[in-house]
């Protein structure tokens, strides 16, 4: 199995406070990798290191190496905009941009000069992949803010898909949703792995078990355990992993 992203000796500090310590992990291509761990252990931080959204926070210091298809993403020749096109990110709280449903999805492709028929197709295709097309196809011109929260989250997914990324990062994508919408989004995520490499942060262990092929357990900024979902949940090697997994009653 090919690793699309390789993380080596990755450490991260926020103004001197170490948030990630010496992380090393392979993220396999076209699989779902879940990052689990208690709140504040560095899950979001790790995710943000993978598409350099971490650069936006002043005072952060990244050490170590992250490669995407063998190329160091912190290398001096890397175009950050291009990296973020290749590694998309969907956040915890849906953030519709201040424009129509259609324009939200078209936002990314437009940046890359897609227009006319091709743009229309890209929007429809993305909305279909996000499982939202049927619900919004007659109201594409309405402001995106009028959608329900669950629909907004799928809109954000569609928006992320529209730029044709290779990797998708999800940061607790269902935690602000009601159970039904959450299930809906989760199903979409599970289907995405046919075409994309998916990394999903979740504090819901049941969700991790349902969608993930691989699981990594972070604790206090360290990677404690890392393996297939079955390994981590059925026969955890580390004491803390055992405690954490047991706490959820799995």
């Amino acid at each position: 199995m090919k690793a699309q992203i390789e993380v080596r000796n990755l450490s991260l500090a926020y103004r001197g406070n170490l948030a990630l310590k010496d992380i090393g992990v392979d993220i396999p291509e076209k699989q779902v990798t879940a990052i689990i761990g208690p709140s504040g252990c560095g899950k979001s931080s790790l995710l943000r290191c993978l598409n350099r959204m971490i650069d936006l926070i002043p005072g952060t210091k990244v050490r170590g190496k992250v490669t995407l298809d063998g190329e160091d993403i912190y290398g001096s020749r890397v175009d950050v905009m291009d990296l973020r096109k290749r590694v998309g990110m969907i956040c915890q709280k849906p953030v519709p941009l201040p424009m129509s449903i259609y324009e939200n999805v078209a936002f990314g492709p437009r940046l890359y000069g897609v227009h006319g028929k091709a743009l229309k197709h890209a929007v429809e295709r993305s909305l279909r992949s996000a499982g939202l097309w049927e619900e919004v196809k007659d109201r594409l011109k309405e402001p995106a803010i009028r959608l329900s929260i669950g629909q907004q989250q799928r809109l954000c997914l569609a928006r992320g898909l529209a730029v044709e990324p290779e990797v998708l990062l999800f940061d607790e994508p269902t935690s602000s949703l009601d159970p039904v919408s959450a299930r809906h989004v989760e199903q979409q995520v599970a289907e995405l792995k046919r075409d994309y490499t998916v990394v999903i942060v979740t504090h819901d262990l049941h969700q991790a078990k349902r969608v993930a092929d691989h699981v990594m357990f972070l604790y206090l900024g360290e990677l404690i355990e890392n393996g297939t979902t079955t390994q981590v949940f059925e026969s955890p090697q580390d004491y803390w992993t055992r405690m954490y997994v047991a706490g959820a009653g799995i």
Partner: peptide, 8 residues
Amino acid sequence: EAALALGA
């Protein structure tokens, strides 16, 4: 962030 994350 939403826009930057799309590569804007």
